[in-house]
Every structure is written in structure tokens, then in C-alpha cells.
Amino acid sequence: MMNDNIKKKMCLNKILHNDNTVGYVFAAPFIIGFLGFTIIPILVSLYYSFTNYNLTTSETWIGLQNYARLFQDTRFLKSVRVTLIYVLTSVPLKLIFALFIAYLLTKKSRGVTFYRSLYYVPSLIGGSIAVALVWKELFSTRGLINSLFISAGLEKVSWFGDQKMAMIPLVLMSVWQFGSSMIIFAAGLKEISPTYYEAAKIDGANKRQIFSHITLPCLSPIILYNLVMQTISAFMSFTQAFVITRGGPNDATNFYALYVYNQAFKYYDMGYASAMSWVMLIIMSLITFLIFKSSKRWVFSEAGE
């Protein structure tokens, strides 16, 4: 009897503390949510991408037509180009900027915490609709930016009327919200052991050498993290274009996510919109994969040493 009980208990304990059990107990919330509120909707949208579903009438199966249509849709091709330009300009600028400010703010000096908060403010409220309206105002014909241009003896720029310029306010708005990347960089910078710096100083390295041979490699895992996160969110940016430029002029800022939204909720072309988001998912996975793949070459890991 006793023995049996103990055996049972031990057995139960074994099961309870088995890695598989522990893993699934802790991962359970995500797995349930993922199956229920992500996987089912995703499959539904995959199904719709092969139909001509338009919300009001029931759908019919049209096979690959939606996908074929994508490659003839000039607005779609332009939106891919525009989004890529946006990602390739805004992400590096934002990261360089965030790193620069984070580096400046590592100095042990009075007020650093205050400064850091100051620079975090744009990220903190950047998502609000009011800020987007303010941004529009800053770049308007009589706005702050143009007034500065005039006082510097330059020509006024029609930011939202010039196809080549319209992207700039959006990129700047994204760069302006560099706060969260900065905070993460700042944390990374603090973690670099001072012994490295001291060793380098003894070897007679100058500031630039220290930065490129010590700071950057030590920071590389964090750069990777920020790069991946910012690339993903840049690909999906929607609100800025939706509120500030509405995709114009002449589709110069018609971001992928905005075009998907318009196809779905403005033109009611749900099937086509679903196909578009699947293509987007594939493009993004590919790029993330490439970043991770390349990271093996440039990310310096302590464990590897």
C-alpha cells in the first residue's frame, strides 16, 4: 500500500516536473490563444484569399486569380516599392540615431535620467492621433519647417504635394520616435564590462577604435534585436500614412498595410486583401530570415568565445 502510494506520487511528480509538462504548462496561454484567436482567423483569411469575398454577398472560389491579379496591379507594385524605400531609410536612420543618443547619455553626468526621459517622450505619445495632426501642421506650407527653410534662405517645399518629398515627413516621424530603441541600447551599453574599455585604453586605442572594436561588437546582439523589431514594425506601418498623407500624392506614400486596409475596408475586396496580406507575410518572413541568417556573421556572442 504505502509503497504503491509513494510510487504513484513519485510517478506523478516525475510527470509534473518533466520538461515537457513544465514547458506546456507555462506555454499554455500562448498556445491556446494562438490556436483560438490567431490560427483560426489566419486559416479563414487564407481561405478567403482564394475567393472573391466582398463582405455583403457569399464568396465563390476563384483559385489563384487574386494572386495573379497582384502582379498586374500597378498600384500594388508601387506600394511594395514605396514600403521597401520606407523600411530601408527609416530603420537604419532610427537605429543610428538611437545608438548615438544612447551613447551620448551613457556619460555619468547630472541629469542623464531626465534627458533620457526627454528623448523618450516622442515614442511615448507618437501613436496618438493628435500627434499625427501636429506633424501634418509642422510640414504644411506655412508650418514650422517651411518657416525655417525661408529664414535659412531656402525655397519653400510643398512636402505633401511633391512626390519625391512626401516620404520625408513620414520617415522623420518614425526616426523621431527613436526612444524605445534608445532605451534598449542604453541598457546594452551599460552591460559592457568596463574591463574591456580599460584594457583597450592600456593598449592605446583611441575613442573611435574603442567604439568600433569594443562597443559595437558587444552591442551586436542588441542591434540585431532592434533591427528585427524595427524592420517588422516599419513593414506594417499604417497609422502615419493613414492619418498624415492618406497615401498620396500619386500613391507616393501608399504603404503596403494602408493599401491592404483600403482594399478590405474601402473597396470591400476582402479576398484580394487577404491575398495581399499573405504575400506580405511571406516577404516579411523572408527578410527576417535573411537578417537572422546574416547575423551569424556579424553578431558577436560571448558564449562563442
Binding site: 512636402w159 505633401f160 504635394g161 500624392p249
Partner: peptide, 8 residues
């Protein structure tokens, strides 16, 4: 107005 000015 050009597209930019209309936009404003």
C-alpha cells in the same frame, strides 16, 4: 491648389 495644398 496643387495636390499638397489640397491635402492641407
Amino acid at each position: 491648389p496643387d495636390p499638397g495644398a489640397i491635402f492641407e
